[in-house]
Amino acid sequence: MTASMEREQAGGENLVSLRDKGTDQVSERLLRSAARLSRDAMTEIDWSLPMEPDKYGCSPEWSSLYGTDYWAELTEEQRIDLTRHEFASIMNIGIWFEMILQEMVLRDQYVGDYHSPEFQFALVEIADECRHSLMFAKASEKMVGKSYRPHPKISRLGKLFPIVTNQETAYAGILVAEEVLDVFQRGCMRDDRVLPFIRTVNEIHVLEESRHMKYAREQVRDAVADIGWLRRQTSALGVSMGAYLIVSSLIQPQAYADAGLDVRRAMYERTRNSHFQSMIRSSCAHLMEFLDEVGLLTKPAMRYYRKAHMI
């Protein structure tokens, strides 16, 4: 994310200038930003309005099959239906990870300093994530009427993640999910080809996640400031493995089936789609720069990022 984007999404607050001011100072500014700029999709979106049949669920360029032979064979109606199921899957996986996120933040702030800006913004973040999950649930229900969940094995690993992770792994893991979605949603929220209520969902999420990402980056910087070589290596590897599971789970195979596609062929074409892979890499560029800056982009970790086409 560029500095100009952060200023835009934080209502003119220059969050980049806060980089070296510490978590409490950043949290204090973010609390003021949240008080002024928080939005509620439950009241802002008219969920009763019918959907326009010619509008996509996301920008077609962000479809996992865009640019493939399979995409070329699809009718416009099939392409629209595919993007709706794909983005519904992304939103549902977002709900799954936001629930993990909330548990991690609660564990981190358990018996914390209740009067500190850091503690209070953590509660704001949890409240935001609850509203985001509800927003995603309503949006996916309206758009396709289907729920998507990660593979049962990954779901079980997700339950363990908040328990076994340390601070830098937890907050860097949060950044992985948020940074990837941020670039994706920025590209879709101003696209007139996308359903209007989905554009609003993206706009709300981008606005509020910009605060969450800043908070998470400060938490990671604080956590890695004095750690040793072994812990740094272990944490870097843990983050990369979690990143691989998150990114590879975003679009579930069932989404292709529900869109009326041949799942086996769709998965085959997706794994070889250089366009989609380049879109994933572009969405992770800022994340990789940050992980490198804090010493969490190690050679063993890069193996998993390459496997997920994040680098």
Rank of each mutant, 00 (worst) to 15 (best):
N202K: 01
E209T: 15
N202H: 13
P196D: 10
D182T: 09
Q219M: 15
T200S: 04
D192P: 07
P196E: 05
D192R: 14
K214E: 12
E208I: 12
S210F: 02
V224P: 03
V224M: 00
E203M: 10
V180H: 09
L181D: 08
G187V: 10
N202G: 06
A216W: 01
Q219D: 00
D226W: 12
I227K: 08
Y215T: 00
W229V: 12
R211M: 04
L181Q: 14
L207I: 14
V206Q: 02
V224A: 08
V194A: 06
E209V: 10
V180L: 14
E203P: 02
A223P: 01
R217T: 15
V194W: 06
E218W: 02
V183A: 13
E208P: 07
K214N: 10
P196T: 09
R190H: 14
W229D: 11
D226P: 00
A225S: 13
G228I: 14
D182M: 14
R217Q: 15
V206N: 11
R217I: 07
V201M: 05
R221K: 14
R217M: 13
E218I: 01
E209Y: 11
R199G: 02
R199H: 10
E218F: 07
I204E: 06
L207R: 14
V224T: 07
E209A: 02
I227F: 03
D226G: 07
H212A: 13
E208A: 06
V206F: 12
D191C: 05
E208N: 06
H212V: 07
Y215I: 04
E203H: 10
V220A: 07
R221F: 08
F184L: 12
I227E: 02
A216S: 15
F184E: 02
G228S: 05
T200P: 01
P196G: 10
A225I: 05
R199T: 03
D192C: 00
G187R: 02
H205Q: 09
A216R: 02
D226K: 11
E203F: 08
A216H: 00
D226L: 04
E209R: 09
H205A: 10
D226C: 00
G228A: 06
P196I: 13
R211D: 01
M213V: 09
F184Y: 13
T200E: 12
R193F: 03
F184K: 01
M213Q: 14
V220T: 03
V224L: 08
D191L: 02
V194T: 04
T200W: 06
Y215A: 05
M189D: 04
M213D: 07
L181H: 11
D222N: 08
Q219R: 15
D191M: 04
R217N: 05
C188Q: 07
D191V: 11
M213P: 07
N202V: 03
V194K: 00
T200I: 13
F184I: 15
A223C: 03
G228M: 09
V194N: 04
I204S: 06
E179T: 14
V183Y: 05
R217H: 06
R186Y: 13
F184A: 13
I198P: 00
H212T: 01
E208S: 09
H212E: 11
I227G: 01
V224H: 04
G187M: 08
M213N: 10
R193V: 06
V180K: 08
N202S: 06
R221W: 03
H212W: 12
A223R: 03
